[in-house]
Design a protein around this nucleic acid. Structure first.
Lengths: 188, 188
DNA sequence: CTAATTTTTTGATGTAGGTCAAATTTTGAG
DNA sequence: CTCAAAATTTGACCTACATCAAAAAATTAG
């Protein structure tokens, strides 16, 4: 049984050279400074950001408070899913937690590529399936795990995250207050 | 701008007759009694249940408690998403809240149909996108809304649900205890 | 290196919503 | 209809976690 990462790798590897060249032609590499905002709430997400270097973050602002919904590391694809997919104004922001290098692909061109190379439609489906699977897991965790358990799970599954990201962001990602997270950590 | 229901309808309407006939041939209609379990935790979800009549429910059992994760009404497609998609043992149950009539399609045959009729791949992607979008919304609601707000939102968006489904199930769906839900309702 | 700023910790207190138990209402089988 | 079982409500109490405030530690700019 392949894990999700292997499935994606396998599908990508199966793309023929023409497809790969086409994809590399429609992407454009850019650099951004720590703190720069690549997507603002209110605007439609028309690009995907393939992270080549650095860390990005996606968050909502609700009642003046930031709610972090995702972190993106090297090789992750950062986008505001609902806005990107349905071309609606985003309710989320995407910013850079470090200096960042990304490959940008415009949605329009990716859609055109999917028509030209149907294998990409399969890839798109696979990525969407994996995204949905992860959301289902997050939802169940939020329903059933205590604050401590959510922290422990993150610690077990993504310890590197804890090394690079400020507690404020981790707290909001775990849906815990900063103070409670600090107390959870104090007891190891 | 089309809503999700219209998008699906449009895509389905665009399927040619051959495709539609093929699909109707691989599905099989069956009836089940209220209370019957159509999918057990531990077994792999290999079928989708297109609800023709009645109401079904999907739920987890965690620490001996049922956690309802979805209701399925007429025209909805009931399945345990992660188990179905990745063919892993399900962590969820699906049962009938009323007597039910469903059209069953085996995943294998649906997969074969997708290869034969690529338009179905697009349909599959659209359905998955909509599912993921709904999950993102649920997740944000759970993070940001109070118990009362979650109930009010359900009341506004799916009032018919409240008429047909027991409070115990609605409470667990909203991630509220039965008693708290009862108190929320008492104050209208 | 040092001061200013940001981040994290610690402490005191508040509260939304959970749990347990019992009363009441509704439902449904015969 | 009738009465037993199931569902819902009500009451008393509890707890996980939030909030507010201030101290301590870490980071950063000059």
């Amino acid at each position: 049984m392949l894990n999700h990462f292997e499935k994606i790798a396998q599908l990508v590897a199966s793309l023929d050279t023409k497809t790969q060249i086409f994809l590399s032609k429609i992407e454009e590499t850019k650099s951004f400074k720590k703190g720069e905002i690549l997507l603002n709430a209110g605007s439609v997400c028309r690009k995907s950001f393939h992270v080549r270097k650095g860390i990005m973050r996606k968050y909502h602002i609700k009642n003046g408070k930031e709610i972090t919904t995702d972190f993106f590391f090297e090789d992750d694809i950062a986008l505001a899913y609902t806005s990107y997919t349905f071309q609606e104004p985003s309710t989320e922001f995407i910013d850079c937690l470090t200096d960042v290098k990304v490959s940008i692909t415009h949605r329009e061109q990716w859609e055109a590529a999917k028509i030209k190379f149907p294998k990409l439609l399969e890839l798109d489906l696979l990525l969407t399936e994996i995204h949905a699977g992860a959301l289902e897991e997050d939802l169940l965790d939020l329903r059933t795990l205590t604050a401590t358990e959510r922290y422990e799970k993150l610690l077990a599954q993504a310890p590197e995250l804890l090394l690079h990201i400020k507690l404020t962001h981790i707290a909001s990602y775990l849906n815990i207050s900063l103070e409670t997270l600090s107390r959870i950590r104090a007891k190891f």
